[in-house]
Amino acid sequence: MTANSPPRPTLAPVIFILVLGALLPFLLQSGFHMRLAMLIWIYAILSMGFNLLYGYTGQISLGQPAFYAIGAYGFAMLQVKLGWGPVPSFIGTLVVCAVVAVLIGLPLLRLRTHYLAMATLAFMLIQHGIANRWIGFTGGQSGIAIVPLQWGGETIGRTGLYFVVLGMAAAVLLLHDFLVRSHVGRAMQAIRDDETAAAALGVHVVKYKLRILVLSAVIAGVAGVCFTLTSLRVDPSLSEFHVLVSMLTIVVVGGLGTRFGPILGSVVVVLLPQVLTGFGELETIVYGAFILVFLLFLPHGLSSLIERRDFLAAFKARKPAGTGKEAAE
């Protein structure tokens, strides 16, 4: 596993990614490319929350898109309906996400594997149903529009907005990285690998699970706020199934339970459809096949290639394991 690799992980790759992100606006010219770049960061934030929860702690939640949507709606509604400023709305939204996560998490974290997955999926469908149907409150299909973010009386331009999103992503990335490398990360992985053993070693399983669920919900909320900031409107499509599929694809392609998997994955998942438009009607099939190929041939995602640094060794290490297994059985 990558977490036990001998050289101590440093902050260098984090800084490298963030510097690269900061340089991006000077390299990209068109507004469309900037939008894609922002979308990459938004999906990266969302998937980092899911990575903490599923990749590191082993608790699957298919309800993450619901928190993403709650974040987006909360941010829009606090501004439009209550007239709060952007910063108080941002904080208020995160509090709302955290409270909802506690309410959902307390009863549901008793469930395991498939039952937890289905219960959280039910939560997502409830959220989606309400966003779609309670027209007086959520605006229904047409959603809610908000005014652009302003600074000193002037509307922040696209590049400024990009740096706001990048700032949020940087904060989440640093938090993600810090947690994973700290004792909390080790406790999380212990829970993932064996709950009973973790409890025996003094890890407070229930407390950790709940904390990580709340944290991942808040992170999904941050992603939702970023989405509202960039698209200036929210609608029920935020918690549609394709968001969930994208998120799962990101963590699988990037690598579950890896430090930079969510970022690598979201680069691929956001850019892939742009490449695939060349395939026309075959796009959906190629997308599905892509996930499958990654699951089969790179189960630890793109990160496993990069973190091992040396491709040949990775392939050599896999081959004998494959033949050895058959001999053993």
Binding site: V245, V252, I285, G288, A289, L292, L295, L296
Partner: peptide
Amino acid sequence: IGTLAAAII
């Protein structure tokens, strides 16, 4: 997740 990919295909 693999069966989900199959569903997409």
